[in-house]
Structure formats: C-alpha cells, structure tokens
Design a protein around this nucleic acid. Structure first.
Length: 148
DNA sequence: CTTGAGCGG
C-alpha cells in the first residue's frame, strides 16, 4: 500500500513514445531489482524540476505549491555566475504531509507548458549559511560550521 | 542563452 501511482523510480521517466516499438520487454519481471534507492526519505524540502529554462517561475511555483499545502519557501534555482535559470527549483513546505501532497499534486503536472516533477530534495551542497561577516580570513572562528 | 533529466546561497 501507499504506493505512488505514476511515481517512477528516482526520476527517470519517459514521455509517451511517439514511435511504437516492436516489443520492448522490461528488464526482468523479478520481484525486486537491486538497482538504486527507490525514493529518498520524506522531507519538507521539495525539489521541483521541469521548469522552463527561459522563464523564472519562482512565484508560479510557489503559487502552485501553495495549493496543496503551506509553502514555507519556494525558489527557482538559477546559476549564480550566469544569472540564468537552470530549469528547476525548490519548495519547502511547513509540514511533511503538505510536502507529500505537494509531490502528489505537482508531480507529473504541467507548468508553463512543460511537465514538472516534484521530489524530496537532498541536503544541498555546502557553502551555504554564511555568517554574514568575514573580517578575518585567517583567524576566523567560523561559528557557522555547525550546520543543522 | 530560446530549452531538460536536474539538487540551490
């Protein structure tokens, strides 16, 4: 029970094939495949992919996500050096259940004419949580190293 | 920098 409808393992799913293949059998009808972890553990942080690379739908994403639950924070990831959107964003819900509803609600849906995918986000890369002030590059105590 | 398969400060 509690299995997702169209939730594919990880994020590798394909559109409807326009060309009808002769007969493509699945890997193996075995019970379980020792491939990779099905889905990450539940988290209030959601990763939304499938955004238009030429459009910053940060507010749309937030509006869309707020329909399923209370969105604490929503942001579209854009390249810091280039300034262009990378085509995906993050949505943080107030609670885990809202995050689940957000995934179930936005995952596989269309946004800006493109399919978007929602999944639990992993702990982002380091280099975040700046103390806001670094005067001493040498004798800096870096009190912000205590992440989470 | 007008197009994808991806995890940001």
């Amino acid at each position: 029970m509690a299995l997702r409808a169209v939730a594919a393992p990880r994020c590798v799913r394909r559109f409807f094939s326009t060309s009808t293949l002769p007969a493509f059998n699945p890997p193996l009808p075995t019970k379980e495949a020792p491939l990779q972890k099905p889905n990450p553990e539940p988290n209030t942080n959601l990763c939304i992919s499938g955004l238009n690379k030429r459009t910053t739908t940060s507010e749309k994403l937030r509006e869309k996500a707020s329909e399923f639950g209370e969105v604490v924070h929503a942001k579209v990831v854009t390249d810091r050096v280039s300034g262009y959107s990378r085509g995906f964003g993050f949505v943080e819900y107030a609670t885990l259940e809202d995050a689940a509803k957000g995934i179930e609600g936005m995952d596989g849906k269309f946004l800006d004419g493109w399919v978007i995918f929602a999944e639990y986000a992993r702990p982002r890369a380091p280099r975040m949580q700046p103390s806001g002030n670094m005067s001493s590059p040498y004798g800096n105590r870096s009190p912000s190293y205590h992440h989470q």
